[in-house]
Design a protein around this nucleic acid. Structure first.
Length: 423
RNA sequence: GGAGGGGUGGCAGAGCGGCCGAAUGCACCGGUCUUGAAAACCGGCGAUACGAAAGUAUCCGUGGGUUCAAAUCCCACCCCCUCCGCCA
């Protein structure tokens, strides 16, 4: 959520920034509402002040057993007027909130301006794409041949975009989760959290999934939603709290299953594990002081990169352009892994600084030691990493001519010492 | 699912419809004392909105209602705790 004061004081700049995201938003209406609200507030406050003083006088008269009927009658009228004004103010505030909750974040000045993914810019590359003396297969072929991925069974027991992992495939998935959590907790200083996979609508609103993106979410009949990412529960852990300066930054990591409807992605990545309704992910979330957030974004991104380095999977880092960024983000780095069968880099992690956008929605604040002032924190999140896509990268990059797949060194302790998955 | 109890400031915990934004304790901040710290003593100490400021208004789980006036009375909902039932 943007600061209404920012919109009020600098509507031109806000509009310009939002246009960089190719977002057409009319700020006139919200400015008009804001103006009206302040006028009504002034009027209502004056009447309330009057009511407060007169009510006190009435109390005094009554205690002295004097007649207060005239004042009471006059206040009855004032009270009615106040009620009317309050109702109007409330309506305007609801209307304002409705608009404000649908406006995306303003991009950071360092973000390249662009239309869509073709305007994202590469920052760095790591590792060499492997050379094969045979035609590398896509992971779905490798997985089915090894009998570790079963797309048919997934479709049978659930629907399309669900997959069953079997045998060493299931174990590899589990190994990846454990390896990543161990790395982030033991070496990167994150605290491990195991949150609920279902959350309420306030929580979804706090991080920006609601109200605008309800159609992307699975909703239960009791009103709870399945989490689309652990970013949601982790960031909301401190919703409506005022945090202590000394406790920042808070660094959390969590494994959760993630659930997405993938509405609007018909025909995209229909084969394989790339785009599923349910997938596993280890997430990184930081809550920090505003002045630290861009440094924290760099280290968070490096923490995610470290996973790929240890797994020896080639990747590149790109910075998303203004037109390709998510709703809540001010700046986003994507990590993309090399997939030999597609001969392409594909997204495996997205690391964002949301600045105070989510903090303002979720009312996450901290008390600054020096200034003795309450202020919004900045929130960051990143995948560290998406498990299913990491499994894809391993299958495709470490495939052998005989159809087997070599297990990356760091995962072997998690696989009971297994070096290779064979039929 | 059934029965009972309860939601007040960072925490604990008072609160006759008007003198309650709210006692008190702890925590925290500043000061005195001390070589330094602790203790003791003195002082300060919620958030939000509007406003240049002074200030004014609002907030006692949430939403409605009664009243000139609600933390306090009424209604609905949510959450927590205890007991019973069911269950991994």
């Amino acid at each position: 959520m943007l600061d209404i004061k920012l919109i009020r004081s600098n509507p031109g700049k806000v509009k310009e920034a939002l246009e960089k995201r190719k977002e057409k938003i009319n700020l006139d209406e919200i400015l008009k509402l804001d103006q009206k609200r302040r006028e009504l507030l002034l009027e209502a406050d004056a009447l309330k002040e009057k009511r407060n003083t007169v009510s006190e006088e009435i109390g005094k008269l009554k205690r002295e057993k004097k007649d207060a009927r005239e004042k009471i009658l006059a206040m009855k009228e004032t009270s009615t007027k106040i009620k009317e004004l309050d109702a109007q103010i409330k309506e305007i505030e609801e209307e304002t909130a409705k608009i404000l909750l649908e406006i995306p974040n303003i991009p950071h000045e360092s973000v390249p301006v662009g239309e869509d993914e073709k305007d994202n810019t590469e920052i760095r590359r790591w590792g060499e794409p492997p050379k094969f003396d045979f035609t590398p297969l896509p992971h779905w072929d490798i997985g089915e041949a090894l009998d570790i991925l079963d797309f048919k069974q997934g479709a049978k027991i659930a629907s399309a975009r669900f997959t069953v992992l079997k045998g060493m495939g299931a174990k590899l998935e589990r190994a990846l989760i454990n390896f990543m959590l161990d790395l982030h907790t033991n070496e990167h200083g994150y605290k491990e959290i195991f949150p609920p996979f279902l959350v309420n609508s306030e929580t979804m609103t706090g991080t920006g999934q609601l109200p605008k993106f309800e159609s992307d979410l699975f909703k239960c009949e009791n009103g709870l939603y399945l989490v689309p990412t652990a970013e949601v529960p982790l960031t909301n852990l401190h919703r409506q709290e005022i945090l202590n300066d000394d406790d920042l930054p808070l660094c959390y990591t969590a494994y959760t299953a993630c659930f997405r409807k993938e509405a609007g992605s018909y025909g995209k990545d229909v084969r394989g594990l790339i785009r599923q309704h349910q997938f596993n992910k280890v997430e990184l979330v930081k809550t920090c002081r505003p002045e630290d957030s861009y440094d924290e974004l760099e280290t968070l991104t490096q923490n995610a990169e470290e996973v790929l380095k240890r797994l020896e999977i080639p990747y590149r880092v790109i910075v998303l352009c203004t037109g390709d960024m998510g709703f809540s983000a001010a700046k986003t780095y994507d990590l993309e892994v090399w997939l030999p069968a597609q001969k392409k880099y594909r997204e495996i992690s997205s690391c964002s600084n949301c600045e105070d956008f989510q903090a303002r929605r979720a009312m996450i604040r901290y008390r600054s030691k020096e200034k003795e002032k309450v202020n919004f924190v900045h929130t960051l999140n990143g995948s560290g990493l998406a498990i299913g896509r990491t499994l894809v990268a391993i299958l495709e990059n470490f495939q052998q001519k005989d159809g087997s797949v070599v297990i990356p060194n760091v995962l072997r302790p998690y696989m009971g010492g297994l070096e290779k998955i064979t039929r």
